[in-house]
Design a protein around this nucleic acid. Structure first.
Length: 556
RNA sequence: GCCCCCGUAGCUCAGUGGAUAGAGCAAUGGAUUCCUAAUCCAUGUGCCGCAAGUUCGAUUCUUGCCGGGGGCACCA
């Protein structure tokens, strides 16, 4: 807010200087305001004079001087200005100018920080979408939390958001799943069968086979093998999917939609999509297969959509799926994938261009690998060896809040080390508790204020609030003022870790303040003012944690 | 060979063209009669992988190289 106003003041000053003839050009650069890293450089600084030097044919410092001389300041925001270095204009903001943020937080409460970026545009975030052929692992967990949090950020910023899970229930993998269960059943029945390497090795297959055999016994082998395999495919997939759904719920994630790949075939959408491309003359036959001309839309080579054997590829159903997404009216479609699928991005983007959609309407978020560690040592993730640590195991061990927060403490495109020991620890190593502790401490102050001091929140008037003048208080007010732009940046860039880092910074400022100053002290007025401020801090913490899907406890 | 991500303090990582590059951990020493010590305070650490280029100004943008990871199917 203050940033906006100072920006406007600089622009007004430049215009006034131009009117009075001192600045010759009306071609002003964009006013970019930043917060200097060093306190001595003020609260805000702009490079306006340097950026405008060539257009004005004037020395930057001279321009800076002119701007300062024409600077309006109707609300008395500015305490002082200075020209520094090659031509920076540094602004020192009067400390009481930071106070109004308290009122904004009080009024906007749970919606404080919400920019209306979306204007009600419909967005779909598709994430996880793991094949229902085995339990989720920690890498899926990262994609799940990143996807869910991006969805939450966009929803908070005025988009109408749907979360969707795409179920790959049509391909060969599902057949393999059924076959794997069938073969395990055969083994249980004492039949001499080979269990091939490309079948699913995990213990969960044996478990399912055991329960099938307990239910059906040898009757299973009375039906035709192909029929039995198909039956087991469907049964196993449904069972695994139910487990996936439960695991995700444990992480606080639920979807608006579970979309079946098979339904695309059943509804004729895959054929319709192929028909569409063919009418647009974007497919051709070669070597007995049907190819999509992906190169015409920037991919490095053309891609097969119908194989020699007449079967469609996964890509074909994906084209149909994304076509369907847009037909359902989404203005923006976001897919969250593991980074190992990055090579797939250009071809799907090409297909989406072929549908006549803008590249800005489709966005792929890639999440990098997660290395699961315990005390710094890698935990074996080999499926073969059966030493599989599932997402469920992790969440059970460290808890939802810690798991979610840790996934969000890295940029999603950086590899992440997830150390189970650290995640479980209730120390400063584990930032989730550091942030939650702020919320709990303030809850404690609030109840103490009510019970022992009879001080109510929101009882301080604006004069009383001016008692907030300690450097630690100003630092907290400034940090709270930054919250809306942090959320906006995080949403625009789809980088939820920014919110996590912001909260850690706010928490650090609060803990430092808490240790140095008493909120509830002998001075009733000062106590009331400080109470109002910490209540505001608590709301910002709560709002931020809400976006991250982490709880804000009253006590710890 | 081509493509993507990463390379910043001993370790794990922030830093969407600005001035003297930050935080946590680890190490050392301190703080609690009083709102939760899951906290705080103090003390050090850097060829921002290397080299060119763009710019008034580059850790940030471009190109090339080096190192680590991943991906390059008529699999999904």
């Amino acid at each position: 807010m203050i940033k906006q106003r100072v920006k406007q003041m600089v622009l007004d000053a430049a215009r006034a200087a131009h009117r009075s003839g001192i600045l010759t050009s009306a071609d002003f650069p964009e006013v970019s305001l930043e917060e200097p890293k060093i306190g001595a450089h003020g609260d805000l600084a702009t490079n306006f004079a340097m950026a405008g030097a060539s257009a004005q044919k004037m020395a930057p410092r001279k321009i800076a001087e002119t701007v300062i001389n024409h600077l309006p300041d109707p609300d008395g925001l500015i305490e002082k200005t200075e020209i520094a270095g090659p031509g920076f204009i540094n602004f020192f903001i009067r400390s009481s100018a930071w106070l109004p943020v308290l009122d904004e937080i009080r009024k906007q409460d749970i919606s404080f920080g919400a920019a209306n970026l979306g204007c009600g545009k419909k967005v779909q975030v598709e994430f996880v979408s793991a094949n229902p052929t085995g339990p989720l692992h920690i890498g899926h967990g990262r994609g799940a939390v990143v996807g869910d949090t991006i969805a939450a950020l966009l929803a908070f910023c005025g988009y109408e958001v749907d979360r969707e899970y795409y179920i790959n229930d049509a391909g060969r993998q599902i057949q393999t799943l059924g076959r794997s269960v069938y073969l395990r059943c055969c083994q249980i029945a004492g039949k001499d069968v080979e269990f091939p390497e490309d079948a699913y090795q995990g213990d969960y297959i044996r478990d399912m086979a055991r329960s099938v055999m307990a239910e059906k016994g040898n009757k299973l082998f009375e039906i035709q093998q192909a029929v039995a395999v198909e039956m087991l495919s469907a049964k196993a997939a449904a069972e695994i999917l139910a487990g996936i759904r439960k695991d995700l719920e444990e992480l606080g994630i639920s979807f608006d939609n579970w979309y079946s790949e098979q339904s695309l075939y059943d509804g004729g959408r895959v054929n319709a999509a192929m028909e569409f491309l063919s009418q647009k003359k974007l497919v051709y036959e070669k070597d007995g297969a049907l190819w999509f001309s992906a190169t015409r839309f920037g991919d490095e080579k053309d891609r097969v959509v119908v194989r020699q054997n007449g079967q469609t590829t996964y890509f074909a159903s994906d084209i149909a799926y994304h076509m369907d997404k847009f037909q359902r009216g989404y203005d923006l479609v976001i897919d969250v994938w593991g980074a190992d699928h990055h090579g797939y991005v250009p071809r799907l983007s090409a297909a989406i261009s072929a549908m006549g959609k803008q590249s800005s309407q489709f966005r792929v978020i890639l999440t990098q690998l997660v290395n699961l560690l315990r005390k710094g040592k890698p935990v074996s993730m080999s499926t073969r060896a059966g030493q599989f640590v599932t997402l469920q195991d992790v969440v059970k061990e460290v808890g939802r809040d810690a798991a979610r927060f840790i996934f969000l403490t890295r940029h999603h495109e950086s590899p992440l080390d997830f150390d189970l020991e650290v995640a479980r620890a209730k120390t400063n190593d584990n930032p989730v508790y550091y942030v939650q502790y702020v919320h709990a401490r303030i809850s404690s102050i609030r109840s103490k204020a009510a019970e022992e001091k009879d001080i109510k929140p929101a009882s301080a008037d604006s004069r009383t609030l001016e008692l907030l003048a300690e450097p630690e208080e100003i630092a907290l007010l400034k940090q709270m003022t930054r919250y809306p732009e942090t959320v906006e940046n995080a949403a625009t860039l789809m980088e939820p870790h920014r919110v996590a880092y912001y909260l850690m910074e706010l928490a650090a400022l609060f803990h430092a303040y808490y240790n140095k100053h008493r909120v509830l002290c002998d001075d009733v007025k000062l106590s009331a003012a400080r109470l109002d401020m910490v209540v505001a801090v608590q709301k910002v913490i709560r709002n931020g944690l809400q976006i991250l899907g982490v709880s804000a406890p009253e006590t710890m």
